[in-house]
Design a protein around this nucleic acid. Sequence first.
DNA 1: CGAAAACTTGACCAACCGGTCAAAAGTCAG
DNA 2: CTGACTTTTGACCGGTTGGTCAAGTTTTCG
Lengths: 215, 215
Amino acid sequence: MDVTVNTRKDAGDKPTRIQEINRRIILEAALDVFSAYGFRGSTIDQIAEKSGMSKPNLLYYFKRKQDIYVAVLEETLEEWLQPLHDLKPDGDPVEELRRYISRKIDMSAKRPEASRLFANEILHGAPAIKSFLGTSLKKLVDEKASVIRQWVSEGRLAPIDPYHLIFMIWATTQHYADFDVQVRAILGAQVDRTGFAEQSAQAVLSLILNGIKVR
Amino acid sequence: MDVTVNTRKDAGDKPTRIQEINRRIILEAALDVFSAYGFRGSTIDQIAEKSGMSKPNLLYYFKRKQDIYVAVLEETLEEWLQPLHDLKPDGDPVEELRRYISRKIDMSAKRPEASRLFANEILHGAPAIKSFLGTSLKKLVDEKASVIRQWVSEGRLAPIDPYHLIFMIWATTQHYADFDVQVRAILGAQVDRTGFAEQSAQAVLSLILNGIKVR
DNA sequence: CGAAAACTTGACCAACCGGTCAAAAGTCAG
DNA sequence: CTGACTTTTGACCGGTTGGTCAAGTTTTCG
């Protein structure tokens, strides 16, 4: 039994320099492709072409199409939830929520592909991340919801169900990324004018914050 | 040249009884399938099976997969936009918007497949209805936006950009249909308890209405 | 009834696509 | 430089899927 033999690729071997580079290239290309066409609508060939490598070569790094998809989802998820993680019980509630909403809008504007990737995944029943939603995400949201509930009970926020508040923040902030073509169709070229993102952020912020301020 | 020969199927011939029945069956099955798997992810066989007919027979009624998709989109669109059509300049602004939001939430709860069908279509660049978005939908939204702007300028509504307000209403009301699995993962079984829809509606309504009431 | 028109279907096809494989080309440590 | 290991690729395969077709069955209507 030659113990030096290893199966590489799967096992926990440290990746080579080339592996590191190429995995990164593939995941970036895959984010673009999957977010544009969805899992079923994307082909390995598309991702390979965008990565500048052949299909068999891509499959040398990720054995199956699913594996690429899951990898890109996991990679992006952590970044995507960071703003919610950073919502802290200390400090002014309205200010904390203002910061949270601002960061969410900012991320949607700067990385719309990430937003669309999740939107598509969830829209179709979240086959790849359902277990994550029910465990890690639920835990995180439960935690932050109780922070918000605390604020409400202290009278520092207008009475509102914290879960519904979080859903509304998600819905409104991601709308501009997920439904970009619709927004463009209606607003036309002004979407590309500088300051549009800030203007949208202002509208979302003022509406939600007005709705939760104590009066 | 036998003039009585007609190409049927495309032409403006009045459909037979069987045609009317089967087209309806197909479109209903297609809404379920397309909304669950998207255009690319759905197969003609799936729709045929759900319709209880053979694939060639289904293709007898709709020559191509695209044709079924476009037909079901067009059919559902009209119904989907009715509430916005009914937003009238007369009457109390807050009451009008309350009615509009309520009807949107109601539709999302009762016909989530329709909501998901559009969400998916727009998410992927609206290839089938892009022209519609830029013409009919834009016209409708422009019209209603100016109604809202009028209300604001009369001081009957808090100052807010009417387009962003409409987008926020769309985003929040459709969120519960489009992201159903996520909502379920976080809230669990309580989603199925009676009154949940009303509770969500209440949360959305109170937040948005609070944000637009003059103070 | 009878025949024309409408409807239905099994068999089939070509394109596409996820994935394999064996062999060539490149990398790198000793 | 050399040989072991890693990376790359062209050719290929089998399953799926959109769509066709010719032949059969049912409906409609004079």
